[in-house]
Design a protein around this nucleic acid. Sequence first.
DNA 1: CGGCCGGTTGATAACGCTCAAATGCGGTGG
DNA 2: CCACCGCATTTGAGCGTTATCAACCGGCCG
Lengths: 240, 240
Amino acid sequence: MTRDVGEVLVRHLGLFGSLSDGDKDALMSVKGEVRDLEAGEDVLTDGERPTYSVVVIAGLLQRYTLAPDRKRQIHSFYLSTDTPSLEAIHIGVMDNNLGALTPSRVGLVPLPELHRIMDLRPNVLGLIWRETLVQAAILRAWLMRNSRLLPDGKMAHLFCEIMTRAKAAGLAPDDTCDLPVTHEDIGDALGMASVHVNRTLTMLRDAALADLHAGRLTVLDWPRLVEVGEFDPSYLHLLR
Amino acid sequence: MTRDVGEVLVRHLGLFGSLSDGDKDALMSVKGEVRDLEAGEDVLTDGERPTYSVVVIAGLLQRYTLAPDRKRQIHSFYLSTDTPSLEAIHIGVMDNNLGALTPSRVGLVPLPELHRIMDLRPNVLGLIWRETLVQAAILRAWLMRNSRLLPDGKMAHLFCEIMTRAKAAGLAPDDTCDLPVTHEDIGDALGMASVHVNRTLTMLRDAALADLHAGRLTVLDWPRLVEVGEFDPSYLHLLR
DNA sequence: CGGCCGGTTGATAACGCTCAAATGCGGTGG
DNA sequence: CCACCGCATTTGAGCGTTATCAACCGGCCG
């Protein structure tokens, strides 16, 4: 289990490109405060001026916005070793929120620390930029999914993405991984009512495609799930 | 009317931050080929390795992906002086398409040219980065809109965004601007059937909120349109 | 003048949301 | 150890809305 901020950075950035030993050493030297979050607690909130970036050491984070009527739209889930807000360096004010869905442990990297590495290591700079672009690509996939797919397709696509990312991060050796979310959470990500999340989930379960219960996601039939979700992992730009 | 690649860059980046005279001179020195596109023609396509970035000199561009069943999801519209793909520098392979909706004129900036400026001008580098992040923020707004809003709200929100961006670019001195799109296009952006685009459009027209016909968008009642669309322009991160 | 594309209008059916109520489960306190 | 409480999940019924299908209109261009 990863416990260190630098180690998270090395593992995560390594997913998108290769790091030299020098790059790795530099990243491992990054210092950051470790903080434990309780379920529902935010690290970065709308309107705030961030002074640090966040990396996920353990747990599950969400990025979301709240509409005036308290409706929530989740933009992304972040698993262990994900780096939700590297781009905080270049944005002045947050226009969305980042928080924990379940008790989580995060690392807070001061922005000057990030600047130091990026000035020192052009290759790392490039990878951080690429990581940001991958997040934009994921956003496009979510837009496509929520606008165009039917409920079962939406859910299948989301499960495929999460499982693919979990596997890449080494969190799902065996087609199953932690995903401690409520039906409400899934609904707020996919743009559907929680009741309907339940029914759709039941369908996927009965069809033996995938299952989600007790905070654990299991993919039962990859090929068919991929087909139902029209899932093409290329937008994740993962190496290998 | 803008005719030059460098001038577009100066005008567009200037929307998000301030440029020194040196920055402006450097940007004006950027050389790029000008190309005319016919309606429906693509400049960058899925799977391609881009060698240049695109800026819009005149016309209207769309960024979109095509599902296997030929369903299209439009991710963004780009107006004159927009810079759709500055980030092309750091992405290896396109995972979506960029094309013209109507006859358009674009500038193609070779990536080495962009690198040259970014190495020379740290402030420009920062603005380009910020521009990329603004595009991500817009994507989040589109996700929110298409997932959570009702048809009239979706359309109102889209119109608010386009008008706000057009005004910022100086294209809508007077609550009206060019928007030469079909109902089909709007539908593929908002995730609704073109027939229903028509009905919703009629409602907005009858309610005297906004109108779109003959390729021209007119906002008739800002306050109410903003309210219906739950529009908050802060995600556009515009200066001024 | 004719054809084609985009816009308009109408009718129908299916789908997903809402409301409502019951069941199951985990944690807390007696 | 058991009882209770709150939260999440499950199931049911009804309704509103939007997609689909289809036909017609109107303008632009060849």
